[in-house]
């Protein structure tokens, strides 16, 4: 069957067998490998993507269920102007070690911040219950989400200011 999605702002179609999950469609048909296959049964959250504004386990959703919807994956967060504050802060706080859970954690956190710009640490914990991490632990992630939230609330975002434009010529030494 043909499934058409708006993925990261682009209309993408693929012919997939009906039993294809959204995760398999993204990874194997659209070659967006940012969402990961961790447990494949909705326990680990490594496959988290945002569908119509809500964080979901892409492994527990058929591609057909997402037909006609808007999907945001980790590949759709950064812009040509810079990293998403969560990506910037997660890098700075060392919240990504092996990084396998990272895309899922960042997408869940993004969905949280989209609805709750000022989350309490408890709200962040609740939001992240569906994302497992085995290396980093959660402390730095919770700090990171708080910092990113503060950054996104301030109009002069320090994460985005002072960054070299992506296509600028390298500095001469």
């Amino acid at each position: 069957m043909i499934v058409t999605l708006t993925v990261n702002g682009e209309l993408r179609s693929a012919s997939v067998p009906p039993e294809t999950t959204l995760l398999v469609m993204l990874r194997e048909h659209l070659h967006l490998t940012g969402a990961k296959t961790g447990c494949d049964v909705g326990d680990c959250g490594a496959c988290t993507v945002i569908v119509d504004g809500l964080a979901v386990n892409a492994c527990l959703m058929l591609a057909a269920q997402a037909d006609g919807r808007t999907v945001t994956t980790i590949e759709g967060l950064a812009t040509r102007e810079g990293l998403h504050p969560l990506q910037k802060v997660f890098e700075e706080t060392g919240a990504l070690q092996c990084g396998f859970c990272g895309p899922g954690v960042i997408m869940t956190s993004k969905a949280l911040l989209d609805h709750t710009p000022e989350p309490t640490p408890q709200e962040i914990r609740t939001a992240l219950t569906g994302n497992l991490c085995r290396c980093t632990g959660y402390v730095k992630m919770i700090e990171g989400v708080q910092e990113a939230a503060a950054m996104m609330r301030s109009p002069q975002s320090p994460a985005l200011a002072g960054q070299s434009p992506a296509l600028a010529a390298p500095e001469q030494k």
């Binding site: 009906p18 039993e19 494949d40 049964v41 527990l60 058929l62 269920q65």
Partner: peptide, 28 residues
């Protein structure tokens, strides 16, 4: 019948039984 799919799909992935002929998605 597929409602949210969170139980059904997890079951279908590891079920030793034959799959259904068709999944009727009522979530929409």
């Amino acid at each position: 019948v597929l409602a949210g799919g969170t139980d059904l799909l997890a079951d279908l992935k590891f079920s030793p039984h034959p799959p259904p002929d068709v999944v009727v998605d009522i979530s929409r």
